[in-house]
Amino acid sequence: MGRARLIGAPAAVSRKRMSLDAALDVAQDDPDAALLVRYAQGDAAAARVLTVQLTPRAFGHALRVLGDRTEAEDVTQEALMRLWKIAPDWRTGEAKVSTWLYRVVANLCTDRLRKRRGSVPLEDIAEPADPAESAEAKLQRGARLDALQAALDTLPDRQRQAVVLRHIEGLANPEIAAILDIGVEAVESLTARGKRALATLLGGQRDALGYDDDKT
């Protein structure tokens, strides 16, 4: 992480030199921040690049946490809107743009899950596809992903967010800790409990999901 490198910078270097190194670290660590600065200066091309890069990530996370495309779409648009609004005041080096965006998405998802809690009919939760449809590999994969989503939907909000960020978005624990505003140990605990619950839920569907057929 950039921060660790800064802390570990040799004490002999001058303050000016170190601040230059820090700026370079930030630029290398977070090209999105440079794009956001260009966006705030009126560069339409930067707006396009940021949109193309960040929208799929925000939508992917929102969809896997919420399990609902319409809600995920709303959350994604809202999160990006907040990014555009904050762009002129963005302070480079304080946080990665993607971390900030994931955090907004996570909070918006939590708000929606809170409102939804206790009011979701069971039939609205995605069901694993009928095993009879899994003759072809494509359908099988679709069924597996549906099953994963259905299992994710049963996890508590924070566990779900942590598992999705760690194992599907592929983020490192310190970044997830920053997104969820918790400690790294808490992230490890959440992901471990989440994985255990998922394994238990999905373990009973091994045959239905074709895992004993293709030995995967």
Partner: peptide
């Protein structure tokens, strides 16, 4: 979705000129 977000981005963008 991408088009709507792009439209938001341009609408919120500080004027270049």
């Amino acid at each position: 979705l991408m088009d709507r977000i792009m439209a938001d981005a341009l609408a919120q963008q500080p004027a270049s000129g």
